[in-house]
Design a protein around this nucleic acid. Structure first.
Lengths: 215, 215
DNA sequence: TCGTGATATTTTGTATTCAGAATTCATAGT
DNA sequence: ACTATGAATTCTGAATACAAAATATCACGA
């Protein structure tokens, strides 16, 4: 078995992100470093390193002397993030090996058809959606781009739990994924990329109404 | 006068980037934290925070137990970065206020025509080029996108000093900038965005031969 | 001469401590 | 009652201290 040894800051970062997914943190409230470090069972040093990383990814914001806080959600930011990820994933498709795309296209179609029931847990739905997108860009030969996409998506996690409890979007999301997969099978990459961008734009609009309008 | 108070980590990050521009650091060599901290006159704590930030931006790489080092340059990575920035700046144009674009277009044209002499210092040329691109995207309403562009470009600084000493590219760079400006004046945003992407692709190819082929 | 292993040294990763800024709370004055 | 002022407290930002991992050194044997 491969023995895994990673810096604490990375483990902490992931733990904070999963807690964020669970909705543990109220947006906008300050983070108390000593309390959080004690809760995680680590010292402030690696915790602060993780916080700085997350701030760089836009998950947190910080200000001099007042430390870190989870950035409040806003429609404006969400729109901005969707625009960015749409462009990046579309670019990732362009940079992908066409042969690889043809190979995975059927699986993408299957996954889109197996979209989780509306009974399924929110967590499960999100995981499925993430997996689909991950597989989609898995053939991208631009490694930096893949890292960047991961990083930007980390900043979107604050929004994930907001879309709990609505069913209708699910169908549409699945339909759009199917469309992308079918266009890939047909070998029409430009159209597939466009459909993917549309998917993000539509997903954004579905979400918009659910974001508190502090804007 | 407004008294400026910023965290040490940010000042350190900037200092390291300017030193990188000066070519102070040999790529691939490990960074000695105590030595560098002493040289900068700070403790290891804020220095490490800056290093972690830079690693997140791709300027540095790190591995468990062996600390940080400046990532070696490679044609592959440079191509990847150019692809990304081309897409992001193009997106920034799309997100810009058309009125603002019309307003700045003449200035962009002037700047392109005033492109520094080939006698000018390398530093000066780069600064001028950066300013032109900054002005170009200054009307972008997607703030996150602007931050992201800045961050990705930080990762490209390692390549800047490589193109010293060649004159011909200068002319072409200026010509391409002029073309973008003229298309903006004509109000043809899609064509301008395309010309901008071409500018990045061409700039990449000009650079390619100058990057050591460790690949 | 080369490789192997034990030991010493260096350097990182993490914890702890210290100093100063921000906030809170109480009190005095209007 | 309300504001302003200042002390006390809390928290962050930075420095220092400590532990463990990585690297270098060197002796020894094939």
């Amino acid at each position: 078995m491969p023995i895994e040894r990673r810096p604490l800051r990375e483990q902490i970062r992931e733990e904070l992100l999963t807690r964020l997914d669970r909705g543990d943190f109220a947006a906008g409230t300050d983070i108390n470093e000593v309390a959080l470090a004690a809760e995680l069972g680590v010292s402030r040093t690696p915790l602060r390193e993780a916080l700085i990383t997350l701030a760089g990814e836009g998950v947190l914001e910080s200000s001099q002397g007042r430390g870190f806080r989870f950035a409040p959600v806003s429609r404006k930011e969400f729109r901005e993030l969707c625009e960015i990820v749409a462009a990046l994933e579309s670019l990732a498709l362009d940079c992908s090996d066409p042969a690889h795309l043809r190979r995975i296209a059927p699986r993408l179609l299957t996954m889109a058809q197996e979209f989780p029931d509306r009974i399924a847990e929110q967590q499960e739905i999100e995981r499925h959606d993430d997996e689909w997108h991950d597989l989609l860009v898995s053939g991208c030969r631009n490694e930096r781009l893949l890292d960047l996409i991961t990083s930007v998506k980390a900043g979107m996690r604050r929004y994930a739990h907001l879309l709990a409890g609505d069913d209708t979007p699910l169908e549409r999301e699945a339909t759009e994924h199917r469309l992308v997969a079918e266009l890939l099978i047909a070998g029409d990459l430009p159209k597939a990329a466009q459909a993917l961008r549309d998917n993000w734009v539509n997903g954004m609009e579905r979400m918009m109404s659910r974001i508190p309008s502090a804007d």
